[in-house]
Design a protein around this nucleic acid. Structure first.
Lengths: 128, 128
DNA sequence: CTTGACCTTCCCGTGACTGGAACCCCTATC
DNA sequence: GATAGGGGTTCCAGTCACGGGAAGGTCAAG
């Protein structure tokens, strides 16, 4: 498989796949002409990475998860810890965004949104 | 006021304040020794920017909001549009994070987290 | 006069890519 | 054989909103 084939199969852009090789997440073989030649295992790893990234794991987390995946002697506790830490981060971010959303929703609701200059949104931002 | 004074008052790090000058959000005066000399209006603008950033507005949104704030002939509709667009982005992000959280919560719950290698988290990432 | 706390500018690094330039490879067609 | 096109390759720069750190000027106190 060439890079565009595996890109189609995994849904990852070719640029991203090259980047993942760059940072050592995958090591596809090369043809004599210099083209990357992807094996099934490469496609499989890339799909794994795509799903991990879709769950918001950082690249470094992905590296760890991939290593655990390939380590038959892993402890599931190690995987769980990575996932729990990440989940915690997401929950923190959610709380922060919810707070922003609540404030913004309130402000937007208060604002007339007409041609007059008077605006509670700006008033709030400029308070004190 | 020197930069550390206004930093204390606004809660913004000096680095951030210099950056805001760099990109043209503020234009503090200078003393003969080259030090920035902040007026009340500068401190006020910085506080405004700090609150806008705390609500998650991008720097470019902040620039727009500041311009609207200083324009006595603004229409509140323009402010409202910026806020609504931003609110939409936040809601999209929230939905995305909630979906991640739900999946992760489920997976973490399924995982024994012991010394055995069997792990539903990895299984899910590697599915297919 | 020295010390230490300020201040200045400048450059590099962050995360995870994306865009673009410049160039090579392969096949098909004129 | 020339050419057109659609692959592929590398490398460099840019994104966003700063933060770290170096090298050096300024100022008040002891």
């Amino acid at each position: 498989m060439n890079i565009s084939d595996v890109a189609k199969r995994t849904g990852l852009p070719p640029k991203t796949i090259r980047y993942y090789e760059d940072i050592g997440l995958i090591r596809p073989a090369r043809d004599t002409n210099g083209y990357r030649r992807f094996q099934e295992t490469d496609a499989h790893k890339l799909a794994f990475l795509g799903r991990a990234r879709a769950l918001g794991f950082s690249i470094e987390d992905c590296r760890t998860l991939l290593a655990l995946y390939e380590d038959e002697t892993r402890a599931s506790a190690d995987v769980k810890r990575v996932a729990q830490d990440h989940l915690k981060q997401i929950e923190d971010k959610l709380a922060q965004l919810e707070s922003m959303r609540d404030t913004l929703t309130h402000l937007v609701h208060e604002c007339a949104g007409d041609s007059r200059p008077d605006c509670p949104i700006l008033k709030d931002l400029a308070k004190e």
